[in-house]
């Protein structure tokens, strides 16, 4: 898994609440059996004026000039600024895969949907919850100042604005540790194999119908 330690990134403001994972990566791209290559189709229906299908060459597509990802000033952005309930709906991990493939490494919002939030950590993306007032302030600053960047430090759990304002955020200790070190979840869990086996042995006696 990718590590996340510190990031100094250009901010892209996506000023919509309840952005669902169908919008982040539409269903036709879920037919892929690969984990990579979803970036060109991130926000496909908002980002392009033509209808996207798998296998199309992004260079031949018609970008929607009114969509924020297509504004030249936000090219190369790696911090996505979003509103409440970001990532709601489908559990598709293709959503964080698409964000990561595009180059987004951190997302700041007042709240995230549970499954999406969890999926981010599996893919080296840091979802940061800040209160709605702070997020509103960041939106205003970002839209006013071209080239607006934020400095994110996972170990210190801080977001620092160009003006020097330092905003703290909460993150679960276990998730933080895994993200900072890029640890393989499955490898860690397999260290618990004896405990899993002991549970299974006990459960086979209590609830034998669960084991066919």
């Amino acid at each position: 898994m990718h590590k996340f330690t510190v990031l100094d990134g250009l901010v892209v403001p996506l000023d919509r609440a309840n952005v669902d994972t169908d919008a982040i990566i539409p269903k036709q791209f879920l037919k892929s059996i690969k984990r990579a290559g979803f970036g060109p189709n991130l926000f496909d229906e908002w980002r392009y004026l033509d209808h996207g299908e798998p296998g199309m060459d992004p260079a031949t597509r018609k970008p929607n000039p009114e969509f924020v990802l297509n504004f030249p000033r936000y090219a190369g952005g790696s911090v996505l600024l979003a509103r409440d309930n970001f990532g709601c709906g489908s559990s598709r991990e293709h959503a964080p895969w698409a964000l990561e493939d595009y180059g987004i490494r951190a997302i700041i919002a007042p709240s995230f949907a549970d499954i999406f939030y969890n999926n981010c950590f599996k893919n080296g993306i840091l979802p940061i919850v800040l209160d709605a007032a702070a997020v509103g302030r960041l939106f205003r600053e970002c839209e006013t100042a071209e080239g607006y960047r934020l400095a994110i430090d996972l170990d210190r759990q801080t977001v620092t604005t160009p003006g020097g304002e330092v905003l703290g955020f909460e993150v679960d200790g276990g998730r933080k540790h895994r993200l900072l070190n890029g640890l393989d979840d499955i490898g860690l869990t397999l260290l618990q194999a004896d405990r899993i086996k002991a549970y299974e042995e006990r459960r086979k006696l209590e609830a034998p119908w669960l084991f066919n």
Binding site: R35, S91, R92, E93, P96, I115, N118, N119, K122, N123, D185, I186, T189, L190, Q192, I196
Partner: peptide, 11 residues
């Protein structure tokens, strides 16, 4: 998500 599908399969 799919990472957890893999995790459940393995563990």
């Amino acid at each position: 998500g799919t990472s957890e599908v893999e995790h459940v399969l393995a563990t």
